[in-house]
Amino acid sequence: MTDVEPEELPRGIALAWGVAANPQRGPKREMSVERIVDAAVELADAEGIGAVSMAAVAAKLGFTPMSLYRYVSAKDDLLLLMEEQAIGLPPQELREYDGWRARLRAQFEAEVLIYLRHPWILSLPITGSPITPNSSAWLDCALDALGETPLTATERLAVSLAVTGQARWYGTVLAGYTEQARTSGLSPQEITVREAALFDRVITAAEFPALRAAIEAGVFLAEDDPFRFSVERYLEGVEVYIAGLDRGHAHADAATWLQDDSAAVAGDKRVRAAVKSVREAEKALRAARKEERQARRDAAAREEARAGR
């Protein structure tokens, strides 16, 4: 038993779970949290998250900004509710695939599609573990897919988070190309060709040998999807690990969280001086490489001029 009172749910989370008190009075009966969130999501889908403000949402609904605050008292709460609505619940068919690997693959693809339909979600900060109903349902779906495996609860969470993280990164890249296509008028394929040409122009074998070899191999123009390839290899590795557990192998040792230097170490006078020296050395190296590239271009131009005589 404990005498500590349970912490009250933040307003936004309480609204998401439907346990927040409704306003006793409002400007008109047709106003509701649901209508406010619907309007905000429509704005974000059409114009991006930067277009969403309490004033803009109120104008879209035909109300004053102050009237919205009776229902959603802070913009952060509105953003949380927008994300909750946009991600929705996991499709029921995700639980109908045969085997954990097929289920996680399907969930990965379903999450990527959410980011393509609502790319503004990717602009919202990650402030902690999923606590809202829909985000909890997606995590539950992934954990359930692994429920019959010999993985520990911690390992199941780790695999679920890895798949979700890969989906978010994939969505970030695709959304970036989509936005660039929208603003430039180019197709994603044309953008890829343009970027490949830029890589080919500035990446040299002398400075970036491995990257130059990749360019020569045509990796930036290939139609292969590197993200789906990588998630398949990840799931393949998990499958091998599970097979080992089935044969009696021990579980892997627990991994520790990565951490940067503590404030005391980072603030140490000698450490700060050393970091400054490294930055200055890197700056000098960048300048030297820039000078080298220019010298090579000049030499190549002179050679071309002599050859043309």
Rank of each mutant, 00 (worst) to 15 (best):
V231P: 01
Y69F: 13
G165M: 11
E216S: 15
P188W: 09
A299G: 08
P226G: 06
R95M: 09
G99P: 03
E83I: 15
R25D: 00
E190A: 13
G50F: 11
G171M: 10
R25K: 00
A222M: 08
E282P: 06
R25F: 00
A255W: 07
D298F: 08
V173Q: 13
A254M: 04
R117G: 09
K60I: 07
R212T: 00
R105G: 06
S277R: 02
G176S: 04
A274T: 11
E282H: 03
V240F: 12
G18S: 13
L221H: 12
A214C: 00
L186P: 11
I114M: 01
A39D: 03
G244A: 07
D246E: 13
Y69A: 13
E179T: 10
H251C: 11
A40D: 11
F199T: 06
Q85P: 09
S123N: 03
S184K: 03
R201M: 08
Y97C: 01
Y69R: 14
V265I: 11
T132I: 00
I131F: 11
T178Q: 15
G50Q: 14
R272C: 06
V238G: 02
H118A: 03
G26K: 01
A288M: 00
P209L: 12
I191V: 02
A288G: 00
P209G: 12
A214Y: 00
E96S: 04
A197Y: 08
A14T: 01
R156P: 05
D225Y: 06
Y234W: 02
P209R: 08
I215D: 03
A181P: 07
Q85Y: 05
L81Y: 08
D140N: 05
P91A: 00
Y177I: 11
E190P: 13
Q107N: 13
G218I: 15
E47S: 09
E292C: 02
A102F: 01
G244K: 09
L186R: 14
H249W: 05
V72P: 03
A142D: 04
L157S: 11
R272I: 07
R182N: 13
S136F: 01
D77I: 04
L198S: 11
E109Q: 07
V19I: 10
E282G: 06
V33G: 00
M82W: 04
R11Y: 14
A40M: 14
H249E: 07
E8Y: 10
A263P: 09
A102L: 02
R270L: 04
A263R: 12
A110E: 03
A162N: 12
E109W: 04
R29Q: 04
L9Q: 09
R194A: 13
A74K: 14
S129I: 12
V33L: 03
E291Y: 11
G147Y: 09
F229D: 03
Q107P: 07
R247T: 11
D224I: 15
Y177C: 10
I131M: 12
A264Q: 14
I242N: 12
E93V: 10
L161P: 08
W17Q: 07
L15M: 15
E42A: 06
A56V: 04
A214D: 01
R289H: 05
A110W: 04
D253E: 15
L151D: 12
